[in-house]
């Protein structure tokens, strides 16, 4: 605080002079948004990774895809709806009742999700036939491919839309960057990889090695991406710098260091790197531990980013922020 620091008079409106964090999407009922977004990332990540294994490990692909689909259909969407003030009006957001998808990332998100769920359910039926049906013909395979591509595209869109929705907010400079959707996408895929290892452990298919090697790379990419994102934000504006400070050194620092860095990245990375050098797959217990850590990391990342979404103050003379 220096002499130029504007001081408020009415408690009521101090948040428009001082940079203050948004609360609608993280506090109270807003926690539902956070949870929905986490399930969105986990679900889409898992589904995307699952279809990647569709040919090589059809059984794991089926169960992984199904779990991902469930994450979206049973958790993400209902959580979002539960958050709405008037949930039963949700139909108003998609065509033909509204053209809002032309401009609104939120409306797009709902449309993407619904389409993904539609294609996804078809793809999962086909995948199920491949995985369990003894006599899957070439037709089924081809159809699976087509629906995999369709569902996959909308799955990616579902994964990135919330990043775009957040980066659309001009007054929250920490979010207002094109990097955000990709951070979310990459982190989601890494989460998916971790989860598919879990699925693999149950279905007994040998995909863990592949998954681990991709995870290693993704985790490093992810770490670099997050570092880039934070450095970028740090230099982008004073308010974004404040967000970074808050995340790294402020009230939510423990979420960042413990949840995102340690559990979300370092622990899984160490486990997979160690298994790389020892040329030995990590033990089941260790793997489960890594998967849990990774999932905690997914929850932490969304929490941290939502929590430090700080508004740029409204007054022109407070431009120092």
């Amino acid at each position: 605080m220096n002499a130029r620091t504007p001081r408020q008079w009415m408690v009521t409106h101090e948040w428009m002079i001082k940079p203050m964090a948004q609360v609608e999407w993280i506090e109270g009922k807003g926690l539902l948004v956070w949870l929905a977004e986490v399930f969105s990332a986990l679900g889409t990540g898992l589904y995307l990774v699952a279809i990647f294994f569709s040919q090589s490990h059809p059984l794991a692909a089926f169960w992984g895809g199904l779990l991902g689909w469930i994450g979206i259909a049973v958790f993400k969407l209902p959580l979002h709806l539960a958050y709405l003030g008037k949930p039963w009006r949700f139909w108003r957001s998609f065509p033909p009742f509204s053209n809002a998808w032309k401009t609104s990332w939120f409306a797009r998100g709902i449309v993407f999700t619904m389409i993904f769920l539609g294609f996804g359910v078809v793809q999962l039926v086909l995948q199920g036939i491949i995985a369990y049906g003894a006599t899957a013909g070439a037709g089924v395979d081809a159809a699976n491919w087509i629906f995999m591509i369709l569902a996959g595209v909308f799955c990616v869109l579902t994964a990135v839309y919330c990043g775009f929705a957040m980066s659309y907010c001009k007054s929250v400079p920490f979010w207002n960057t094109g990097l955000l959707p990709f951070v979310f996408l990459i982190m989601g895929v890494a989460d998916g990889l971790a989860l598919i290892m879990g699925v693999g452990m149950v279905t007994g298919q040998e995909l863990i090695g592949t998954a681990e090697s991709v995870t290693r790379i993704l985790l490093i990419v992810n770490a670099l991406l997050i570092i880039t994102y934070l450095i970028n934000a740090n230099y982008q504006s004073t308010t974004a710098e404040l967000s970074v400070k808050e995340l790294v050194r402020g009230h939510v620092a423990w979420v960042f260091w413990l949840g995102i860095v340690l559990l979300g990245i370092l622990v899984p990375l160490v486990i997979s790197v160690v298994s790389y050098f020892t040329e030995q797959e990590a033990s089941t217990g260790l793997l489960i531990f890594a998967i849990c850590c990774h999932t905690v990391g997914a929850f932490s990342l969304k929490y941290g980013v939502l929590k430090v979404g700080i508004y740029r103050p409204i007054l022109p003379k407070a431009h120092a922020y």
């Binding site: 609608e24 003030g85 009006r89």
Partner: peptide, 22 residues
């Protein structure tokens, strides 16, 4: 009658001039 209370506009308004009626 159309608003379903998603509060996206509350967040998106750069001037913080919208209030969700809880």
């Amino acid at each position: 009658d159309k608003c379903f209370g998603c509060r996206y506009c509350v967040i998106a308004c750069p001037y913080q001039n919208r209030t969700y009626l809880s």
